[in-house]
Design a binder for these strands. Sequence first.
DNA 1: CGCCTTGGTTCCTTGAAGGAACCCACCCTA
DNA 2: TAGGGTGGGTTCCTTCAAGGAACCAAGGCG
Lengths: 165, 165
Amino acid sequence: MQRTSLADMPCSIARTVDLAGEWWTPLILRDVYLGLTRFDDIQANLGISRKVLAGRLERLVDGGVLERRPYQERPPRHEYVLTTKGLDLVRAFFALMAWGDRWTAGDAGPPMRLRHDSCGELATPEVACSHCGKPLTAESVTPEPGPGARVRKGTSGLAQLFART
Amino acid sequence: MQRTSLADMPCSIARTVDLAGEWWTPLILRDVYLGLTRFDDIQANLGISRKVLAGRLERLVDGGVLERRPYQERPPRHEYVLTTKGLDLVRAFFALMAWGDRWTAGDAGPPMRLRHDSCGELATPEVACSHCGKPLTAESVTPEPGPGARVRKGTSGLAQLFART
DNA sequence: CGCCTTGGTTCCTTGAAGGAACCCACCCTA
DNA sequence: TAGGGTGGGTTCCTTCAAGGAACCAAGGCG
């Protein structure tokens, strides 16, 4: 779909989008997480082109997000399962889901809810500070360059950290 | 880029991706958040085609994520600023950024870090339970249908909740 | 006047998405 | 042994979005 790869940008959002932000990919991961682990099941559920699905699954396996695992031999059959890296990505998608619940669900309410096993309650995923545990919002945070930043000479402003070259 | 719209799926991830998951869109929002609010600045920073940028900005304004605001008249000039809805989306992107920091940053480390104003520390955004405040992971949660779910007859399994039709 | 800046729009080419057909190994049943 | 079903794709063709460059218009500005 894209000609421009985002993988080489010095930005963790860009690199995440490059691997997991292609069209359909988040929904494929959602399906796998919810138990649709086989090619035909995912294809039928999403209505995605088989060609596109094959490509996305290959990319996710190469990226270490999914594992292609045989569940029987003779005839050889396999399923796709989330790796640790993939489960961690699903966790991040919970934050996107919560945003969608808040802003796009409308009167019908959220299509899916999450029950937190440890506390037993229906949970709204929140983005919180790892240090103090309080809500981490865009307004309550100040971005600064990290060790992996590539600052370009002759420019200024934080966003210049993420210039493509 | 896509022919298939995800907007009508009964899934908050799909609806979020439909609006904010197009190629370049997360990076545009990142730039606006970091202070690159003008067309030419964003275009130069990302190296994106002007046509694509114009389309993305229009879609984000229509979707209520950005606001197109004049900052001077004569000559008329305007900038793009995040709405409340947009700032909340940036917050969800923090979770994606944290994933990228963990899994794609490599030895160089994260390109950007966030200092939490209220506690003063460098924060790693975590996805936490709104109820008990503890970490919310993919493994520690049980999905169940919400009020907005559309269960299809003749199928089974949670993922069937999100079938396209 | 001619040039610069901002904020786009138009045009053309390339390449990804969508859709349908096809394929192959293996199994089952009659 | 023929025929049909299933899982997991691949091939082919058409359509439409992305990329890139040129163009444009309103308003300064020297």
